[in-house]
């Protein structure tokens, strides 16, 4: 089976600084993978490379066996850590946009989720609260039946109740034959949903293992191991 995400000797420099150094990582389909590391460890850089927002200094990265390009972008559903939608658009206009460009976008599912949140589709995005805007973006991302979901800090900066909603939305709406790669440093909240964990330290992969194997091998939870590995 073709790995859904495969990077080989990926290095990314920003000037003299190496954000990623010789990363080798393979992810199989149907897994929920946590990309874990402290701030500045290279999580966002790796995710943006996979999303096609950055190009690597060296190495190769493929999604479902293809190099990054229009085809991989049709298979990848990306949730960035920032608000990237135009404020002047209404919610329905954004849904139309996603429906136009992505064949795997489920408009009915998106509208249902918006209804449950009681978000008026005709409302302009700039009139929504920050929390609701983030939820709209999450709904758009998870309404696609993608092969790879790249979620960059989806629960960062939100209250515990919102975190539960976000994780629940992720779990109940993703394509189960696809793979989710969640980057976060809030391990305790996501650990229960993870199949695998990738620890990123100073731009290199220090651990890549199934969560159950981590618990068996280290006799610790992933959160406890994270605190130990990344202790200041």
């Amino acid at each position: 089976m073709t790995p859904v995400f495969e990077c080989s000797h990926i290095t990314k420099h920003y000037g003299a600084k190496a954000a990623l150094s010789d990363i080798n990582l393979t992810l199989e389909p149907g897994r929920i993978v946590g990309l874990l590391g402290p701030n500045g460890s290279g999580k966002t850089t790796l995710i943006k490379l996979a999303a096609g927002l950055l190009t690597s200094t060296s190495g190769t990265l493929t999604i479902c066996g293809e190099r990054i390009g229009p085809l991989t972008k049709s298979k990848v559903s990306y949730l960035p850590d920032k608000d990237y939608l135009s404020g002047w658009m209404s919610v329905s206009q954004v849904i139309d946009l996603f429906h136009d460009f992505y064949e795997n976008f489920d408009r009915v599912k998106a509208c249902e989720m918006l209804n449950r949140l009681q978000i008026d589709p005709e409302q302009k995005l700039k009139t929504l609260s920050k929390g609701n805007r983030e939820k709209v973006i999450l709904i758009l991302t998870m309404s696609r039946s993608a092969d790879l979901y790249l979620l960059d800090e989806p629960i960062g900066g939100v209250d515990p109740a919102a975190r539960d909603y976000i994780l629940q939305t992720i779990l109940t709406n993703y394509n189960e034959s696809g793979t989710i790669l969640i980057s976060t440093h809030l391990i305790s909240d996501v650990e229960r949903i993870l199949d695998e964990a990738v620890f990123l330290k100073n731009g290199t992969v220090s651990i890549h293992s199934a969560v159950d194997d981590i618990r068996n091998q280290y006799q610790k939870s992933v959160d406890e191991l994270f605190r130990e590995v990344f202790a200041c």
Partner: peptide, 13 residues
């Protein structure tokens, strides 16, 4: 700028 996150992740060349 920020909207480039949407533009450059669309499935277009």
């Amino acid at each position: 700028k920020e909207e480039s996150y949407l533009t450059h992740t669309l499935p277009v060349s």
